[in-house]
Design a protein around this nucleic acid. Structure first.
Lengths: 155, 155
DNA sequence: TCTGAAAATGAGGCGGC
DNA sequence: GCCGCCTCATTTTCAGA
């Protein structure tokens, strides 16, 4: 759809660093004027390279301090069964990520929630009602050593 | 540090939706004028509620189409051993997330990389050199059914 | 903490190269 | 595809309540 050159990738890197960096500052950094920077960002957005510009919130400060990863194994692996599970899992607002996986289980869920008590309730009332589940195994995050959404910024 | 009220949380919700939403639009939505919106956002940033405003990039379009989750078990669980592992793991740029976990393994890594060939090389040259690893097990993402960073937006 | 307004900065569009 | 200019919108600061 759009074939980004080195300048485009540099712009992506800068916007990963700061999604509100001004076009002027970007232009100075990539050694172009504001106009091409502007049009390149438009193209990068329209073509889907930039999925979204968003504020990343600290979950601990807003009562979502507990993160769980849950592995799910289904009873049957028909297309219908897989699609049903996905349709229900993604509706749960505490389920932030849901992946269909290779290997010994079928799905991996990232769940963020207030605390263990709230998790208990989520488990009883929502997770346990997900369709066609054969087995679920949950691991909790003790500490976050790294969380990075930026692909272009070297650590 | 800072105790956000309902208006602050509403502002967070809007900035999760669109990190570049103008203060004017935010002000209209939360029924305040621009000045308090401005000062609230400053406070939310300084106090760490907003970790960062960033562009989320589509990894598939920039040659990072393969995502792996790797579970790591260490040989020894001394503080030194844990810290050593973390220090080395977070240096690897393909390791986007690294968590210390409860349960039958110690760490969970999220790895994004070009393709399986590149993963093979990463495994041989970097992952296999991580210190004090007893066991590693990797699962690959077949498809992403949900990826959400916004805590306040109901699905 | 809020309102309203002024000053500074940025965005987005146009003609020309 | 780039530059410089122009106009409008937005951000940011300030006085005052």
């Amino acid at each position: 759809m759009y074939n980004p050159d080195r300048t485009d990738l540099e712009i992506l890197r800068l916007l990963e660093q700061d999604g509100r960096m001004s076009h002027k500052v970007i232009a100075q950094t990539v050694h172009k004027s504001i106009t091409p920077v502007h049009s390149r960002i438009s193209k990068l957005e329209k073509s889907g390279f930039i999925r979204k510009i968003t504020a990343l919130i600290n979950p601990k400060l807003i009562g979502r301090g507990l993160t769980a990863y849950t592995q799910v194994l289904l009873k049957v692996h028909s297309q219908e069964s897989l699609e049903n599970f996905i349709a229900e899992a993604v509706k749960i607002k505490e389920v932030m990520e849901c992946y269909h996986m290779t290997g010994t289980f079928d799905f991996l869920l990232r769940i963020t929630i207030r605390d263990m008590e709230a998790y208990n309730e989520l488990l009883l009332k929502q997770l346990s009602n997900l369709p066609a589940v054969a087995q679920m195994q949950t691991f909790f995050v003790i500490s976050e050593a790294k969380y990075e959404t930026a692909y272009f910024n070297t650590v």
